[in-house]
Lab assay of single mutants.
Amino acid sequence: VFVDDHLLEKVLELNAKGEKRLIKTWSRRSTIVPEMVGHTIAVYNGKQHVPVYITENMVGHKLGEFAP
């Protein structure tokens, strides 16, 4: 499973602090992992960042699938 390192670091850091804030990313190719559930990730679609709230059903899919 591929997840960009910088994105995973941000998610794990927020989980350690117990925070839930918006994470901006250009990494549409990253796979959604269970650690991301409950976070809102702003995924770049080529024009703007689209906020995507991550749920359990999204695990295993790519971030780009949810930012048309």
Rank of each mutant, 00 (worst) to 15 (best):
E9N: 14
I54M: 10
K20Q: 05
F2H: 09
V1F: 10
V50Q: 11
D4I: 02
V1N: 13
V1I: 14
V33C: 09
N45T: 10
K24R: 11
L12W: 08
K17A: 12
V50D: 12
V33I: 15
A42F: 03
Q48H: 14
L8F: 10
T25Q: 00
P51M: 06
G60A: 12
L22V: 14
G38E: 10
I54G: 00
F66Y: 13
V1D: 14
K17F: 06
F66P: 02
L7Y: 00
Q48A: 13
L14D: 02
V1R: 04
T31R: 06
I41R: 00
G64R: 09
N45L: 06
R29E: 08
G18T: 03
R28F: 05
V37I: 15
G60D: 09
P51E: 12
P51V: 11
H6R: 14
Y44I: 06
G64A: 10
V33P: 03
I54H: 00
V43P: 08
V43T: 06
M58N: 10
D5W: 15
R29N: 12
T40S: 09
H39R: 01
W26F: 15
E35Y: 06
P34T: 12
L7V: 02
Y44Q: 03
K47S: 10
K10G: 04
A42C: 05
A67C: 06
T40I: 09
L7G: 00
E56V: 13
R29I: 15
N15M: 02
A16I: 08
M58I: 14
G46Q: 07
F66W: 10
T40G: 07
L63S: 02
A16D: 06
K10V: 14
K62R: 11
R28M: 04
K17T: 12
L22F: 05
K24C: 13
K47G: 07
W26S: 13
K24M: 13
Y44F: 11
G38C: 07
H39T: 01
V1C: 14
Y44D: 04
R28V: 06
G38R: 08
R21W: 09
H39S: 01
V59S: 08
V11D: 01
V37F: 14
T31Y: 14
V50Y: 11
T31M: 11
I32H: 00
K20N: 04
E65S: 13
I32R: 00
V50R: 10
E56M: 12
